[in-house]
Design a protein around this nucleic acid. Structure first.
Lengths: 220, 220
DNA sequence: GCCTACAGTGAACACTGTTAACCGTTAACA
DNA sequence: TGTTAACGGTTAACAGTGTTCACTGTAGGC
């Protein structure tokens, strides 16, 4: 779809607000209302673009993952790959992950294409962590340390996490929240005040998280 | 300034895009151009509002901090206080922290009021962590573990961190990035797929981070 | 030759931030 | 006391936005 690639071109050139219907149409020598033959609204257009971006990122990570020798290295690879992709495509990343405060209970169980693509993206990390665990179960915090409320919530997601126990799900979640938060902060410029090049900091953090998952120290 | 409180009312009611010049003006029985007597542009208005919000949040955290018996408890208090404030004011929090991708080298060393207010906000955490360290220096990772590049960057910020060594600055940064990332993910709905109530998870994470800073386990 | 679906157009509506020209009140000052 | 300037507000207008409507060709199927 050339219309989405036109939208993306405008996105990388001028950020999310540059994706205007007339601007996109102009890019294709078209009239603005013509786009309504293909998308129900402006939101639908950017949502479809976001879905595409998720799929592209997912494919990139899968390809990168499959170059890893073992599961542990694969986990390091996709973590670094996510950061690299985000830094190489800050506008796209901002559009995908930086849309805050989705009004509560937006669409119940969102099944919009972009949300589904986001789930496929997340599954790459979830599946790999689960594989790592079942291949060599990493030591996880005992239930007493997490507290009964948290354990109950985690066990509720046990089937989704391939039957992992609460403590292991907790560590998987920690892996994800730390990785995600770190990359968002770096890409969104929330780390500039402390570090001008967050690469070394990211690597150190990744080593920490990897250790918690029982992985060998860093590759390379 | 009643004009900013009108803008805030619209913000909490309809999110950031609801802050329109005409909407704000209507709230005060005014005409839209009248607002230009007080703010140079729409951006200036929301920027001033953001500065106010930072100051309000900072004051709230300081007041909360001063109810803590010792420095360690104070650190737990402001961490939880930040989360509570964010959850209680998601629209405000989204406006303050969820504006992604500030175009590179926006205003060099930004000295806009909102940026200054953000620095005062961050200082609350930085100062307290430094006090905690100098009262009872927590064990920090050796330089060899962090790598020379990262150590060099961290030592560059040593004066800003009250003379703390690289390893201690690293742990302080870890405290902040984990706390910040965690809260952003929760209030921006990025944790719903895994936890419907992230409170217990937040507490567990906070205990982890506190342990790394040599603090006693949780209060209460 | 009809008919339907497709793909596109220009005009228009309601909205946005912003600017210009204008007006009344108020206060300072020679 | 009369003049001047600033303050705080107005209406009208401009360019831009997403969106809808009515319309026009143009292709293919029966």
């Amino acid at each position: 779809m050339e219309i989405k690639s036109a939208a993306r071109k405008l996105l990388v050139e001028g950020g999310a607000p540059a994706i205007g219907l007339r601007a996109v149409a102009r890019e294709l020598n078209l009239s603005a209302p013509a786009l309504y033959r293909y998308f129900a609204s402006h939101d639908d257009l950017v949502s479809a673009l976001v879905a595409d971006l998720y799929d592209e990122l997912t494919a990139f990570l899968i390809e990168l993952r499959d170059t890893g020798a073992d599961l542990g290295e694969q986990l390091f690879l996709i973590a670094g790959g996510l950061r690299d992709w985000a830094l190489a495509h800050p506008a796209e990343f901002g559009l995908m992950f930086g849309s805050p405060v989705p009004d509560p209970e937006a669409v119940e169980h969102e099944l919009t294409p972009s949300h589904q693509a986001a789930m496929r993206f997340g599954a790459v990390f979830k599946d790999l962590v689960a594989q790592v665990y079942w291949q060599r179960p990493f030591p996880s915090p005992p239930d007493a340390e997490l507290g009964p409320e948290l354990v109950a919530q985690l066990e509720q997601k046990s089937e989704f996490f391939d039957g992992m126990p609460a403590g292991a799900i907790y560590l998987s979640l920690t892996y994800w929240t730390r990785l995600y938060g770190l990359i968002c902060m770096e890409v969104f410029g929330q780390l500039h005040w402390a570090l001008e090049d967050a690469g070394a900091y990211f690597d150190a953090q990744l080593r920490e998280i990897g250790q918690a998952l029982g992985l060998d120290c860093p590759p390379g």
